[in-house]
Write a protein that binds this DNA or RNA. Structure first.
Lengths: 218, 218
DNA sequence: CGATAGGTTGACTTCAATCAAACGACGTGG
DNA sequence: CCACGTCGTTTGATTGAAGTCAACCTATCG
């Protein structure tokens, strides 16, 4: 089951989603829902980019995931949202009543399985992220992030990616500061691994990103 | 839905589990399954303690969770296990065929919902961990870990907990080194927040653990 | 006993954070 | 058209928290 379905419409057994959902828009930095809200709805991102956010009392921020067109989120069975969701850029979403989804799942075992698989996917990525945050160096986190984004953002192999999020979002996603993210990117540029033009990043040497331990660490 | 069900038997809608499962034993440090294995089975820990582990090629290790009696794990819908599971101490587990579980879920919507909720719980804890690993200091991680273990290990309010895992496991769980864990514990002991007797830790000042920023940091 | 595994402590290093400044792009209003 | 403010980014200098390296301690067990 591929993570990224078509942005236009959910695939296969998820088709019934379209009968329940309504389309909503969120402009840049707008909150879609807030941590602690009753989890009335699940979502599929149609266009744009969404970040999931958890905040500590003192303002420290962790961006859990960046969601891209086709991604489904907030489908897991929890009474309240355990994170906030905010639009990174102007975005369109399809919104589904969780109650209706659960009810539908009760009558369609195939749909119920799909739901479980989708949540399983989220769990897998969350676990991968734990390794990144707990055990990888700044350079490794950055390289891994660029590779992930390259895979998710552009099918074409040109290696050019237009990042929707700014450096602060990247930093809060990777457990780093914005300065460390900048320095890491600069370092990659100096080594000829990438080219940087503000939000547009071109991957020049993909293998070097895959093994940042080798010659990347000066 | 509480996280820790009775160790002896699954609760409520999960009762059917017992008809499918068999009991298995794992001795200290024994692998229950390995990352990449086909996910044929799901598990419920009956007694002991299990750690979930992900390894990087160079040996760096991340312990995702510590599972305690009553905890269910590896129920998420993934074709292969995305982590290894190892017994921290001699443990007993109940093992369930994933195929049978899925099939049962197809015929019992209530069971299917329970399954989704259980996976949702795992997702919630994974997300909380991401904040810990990405944004918290060593002292905060340690304090949070002790509070979590106090909640999960002993119902009695004496504040004495017998940690099943060693310092290395704790370190790999918290994204720290063993030395930093030791120093952090020593610091807590010096402040009178805890008492340490090898694996037995007594919480003397629970509020101080809850707000480690205040006077805990030197 | 000696060997081993796990835990603690000390000295020193290092990677990333912090503090600080400047730059570039962009949009608005004079 | 240009001046100005804002926002995001980049770079430099310095600090500091946690890592590394190393030694030693303490149980436990054959």
């Amino acid at each position: 089951m591929p993570r990224a379905l078509s942005g236009a419409s959910p695939a296969g057994a998820l088709a019934p989603l379209d009968h329940y959902g309504i389309t909503i828009c969120a402009s840049r930095n707008e909150e879609i829902f807030v941590e602690g809200d009753p989890a009335k709805y699940g979502y599929r991102l149609v266009s744009g980019c969404v970040r999931t956010v958890k905040l500590l009392e003192d303002g420290r921020r962790q961006v859990g995931e960046f969601l891209l067109p086709g991604d489904l989120f907030a489908l897991e069975s929890l009474a309240t949202h355990d994170f906030s969701a905010e639009a990174v850029v102007d975005s369109k979403l399809r919104r589904y009543s969780r109650a209706a989804l659960e009810e539908f799942a009760d009558h369609d075992p195939g749909f119920a399985r799909q739901l479980r698989e989708l949540v399983g996917d989220r769990l897998r990525t969350a676990r991968g992220r734990m390794v990144t945050l707990g055990r990888k160096t700044a350079a490794e986190r950055l390289a891994g992030f660029l590779l992930e984004m390259a895979d998710r953002l552009n099918a074409d192999a040109s290696g050019v990616l237009e990042l929707p999020m700014n450096r602060t979002d990247m930093a809060d996603h990777l457990g780093l500061t914005i300065e460390t993210v900048c320095r890491g990117l600069t370092e990659l540029r100096r080594h000829g691994t990438i080219a940087i033009d503000r939000a547009r990043i071109s991957i020049r040497d993909r293998p070097a990103l895959g093994a940042p331990g080798r010659d990347l660490l000066h």
